[in-house]
Amino acid sequence: MANLTVESKIPFLLSPVRIYRNIRKYNYLLRHLIGRDLKIRYHNSVVGYGWSVLEPLALTVTFYILFAILSDDVDPYRPLSILLGILLWSLFAKSFSLGTIALQRNAAMIKKVYFPRELFLFSKSGYQIVQLSLSLLVILPLLLHYRLVPTTMIIWLPVTIVLTSMLGLGLAFFTSIWQTKARDVEHIVTIFLRISFYLTPVFYPLKMITSGRIPSQYTDVYLFINPMATYITMIRSAFTGEPLNIPVENLYVTVGSTVAIFWLGCIYFVRKERQAVKNL
């Protein structure tokens, strides 16, 4: 029985535990919200779910052509690399940007019924994961074409998906609260994502940065401030079986910072959410 006022006795430092319990308790609602988004998105469309695949495909073709014109680098798996980059980037970018507006855009529902508000953010991320899984079907013919047989490296696939969602959500935990106060936040996030799209190896390989024109002493800094560079390289290796070529210490820092952002985001969200909904 829902007894709304019994505050759980979990200290703020353990906010992720509290969020985890809420997600478990309301998992049927989470699934429902994800289903709602899918239904609405493909409602009244002829191609339906096909769009979730066609959109990244179109982008891949665009960047493939662009890259072929601009660079003479030879990546044997170029279409596959670009497609994976775009898919994982969308997971991050959309978890972050849709998460940012999740509270504000659902104001009507939030003002009528109480349930843990982090569900709105998780549902956006979950929806992106469903989309990503659908799009991964396109990868199969590419794998056949390149005669790539998944090796043990394939374990990087779920790892990167989880870490990427955690990064996007972790940031959205902060921005979604700010967005209830100032609508500028969503525009800042949009611009930030647009710039970082080009600064991240989404449609080019990481080695163009690490062994390119950037002095090597800066590449560590680059990898540190841009976790997505690492995760996109990871998901590529997961399928191609190529070594990561990222120092292990850098991996620790990247994964550590993602977990820290997620953790701090959870704490911030749990602390501020009750006051933030009054701004809606």
Binding site: A2, N3, T5, I110
Partner: peptide, 17 residues
């Protein structure tokens, strides 16, 4: 209904609202 948390005082509710 639990939508807003009070700034002071307490609200206790028994049952589904």
């Amino acid at each position: 209904a639990g939508i807003y948390a009070p700034d002071e005082g307490s609200v206790k509710v028994r049952g589904r609202v």
